[in-house]
Computed example of a mutant assay.
Amino acid sequence: MLKEFAELSTPLVADACVRHGIPLRIAPAGIGAVVPGHRVAGRVLPARHYGSVDVFLEAFGRAEPGDVLVIDNGGRTDEACVGDLAVLEAEAAGVAGLVVWGLHRDTPELVEIGLPVFSYGAYPPGPVRLDEQEPEALASARFGPHLVSGDDLAFGDDDGVVFLAATHAEAVLATAHEIRRTEREQAHRIRSGDTLRSQTSFDDYLARRAADPSYTFRRHLRRIGGAIEE
């Protein structure tokens, strides 16, 4: 999956979802890579954290190569829930990366390990609590307002993390590639002196909108084959 995502970005995947009418499922703003530039893509391996690493070890027993461990720690900012040992074990299990709704620690060690980890940031203390584990602990994970499971894929880069149902992946990624090609061509033309206003026939758009207030810029772009907002 990471190979499929190699030339794409989370903004392109998000725009492709919009074009297909698929509701966006985006990790909350602030979730980012421990090491800038790290990217991740793969099937969601969900785990809900209750204060102990045992749930991660159990999840790793179910992992398939290339899975992305998605950790639900409720977005907590009073504890870090993963550190170097959990990440090393993830690597040993063939996991492609971790996406944490919460915080991490052992930052220098994580940088050295090199496995992509996405979180809200670093915080020194680990958990001092131990809550009761729910039956769904390894079946699904909450991430902000979203619920994800093994039926979903996770894509992460410097712009954040996007979740996508695996059943939509082929169509969405194909459209994302189309949008990328269009946008790269538009960028090349801007650098060559052909302004975006000219490329998008913006004066024509303004005239059409004046005659028909319901005529949106997105509708106009679709009519002329441009790509900016989606």
Rank of each mutant, 00 (worst) to 15 (best):
R184A: 14
R76M: 09
V44N: 00
A86M: 14
R191V: 13
T167Y: 12
R191E: 12
F202W: 10
V13L: 03
E89H: 08
L164F: 03
I22Y: 03
E183G: 13
E91Q: 15
A16S: 00
T182K: 14
L98T: 05
Y215A: 02
T167R: 14
L8Q: 05
P11D: 05
R181I: 11
G83D: 01
G97Y: 00
T200S: 12
D84S: 13
A141H: 03
P65C: 04
G74F: 00
R222K: 09
T182L: 13
Y215D: 06
Q186M: 06
G37F: 00
E58T: 11
L115Q: 02
T107L: 06
S52H: 05
S9W: 05
S119C: 05
P36K: 03
R184F: 11
L164E: 03
A166K: 04
I31L: 09
A154K: 03
N73I: 06
C17D: 04
P46G: 01
F143G: 01
R76F: 04
H38E: 15
V111Y: 10
P65M: 08
D106A: 06
R197H: 15
D159L: 14
I190V: 15
Y123A: 00
R39M: 10
F60W: 07
T175Q: 03
M1L: 13
A41P: 08
Y120K: 02
I190P: 09
T77C: 01
G37D: 13
D131H: 15
D194K: 07
D78F: 01
V128M: 04
C17K: 10
V55W: 12
Q133P: 09
T175E: 10
P124G: 02
V40F: 01
V35L: 08
V68R: 01
G66I: 02
A92P: 11
A29E: 15
F155W: 08
Y205W: 07
Y120H: 08
P145D: 14
R197G: 15
R219Y: 15
G30I: 03
R209K: 05
F56W: 08
D67E: 02
V40K: 00
A141D: 11
C17M: 02
L164T: 08
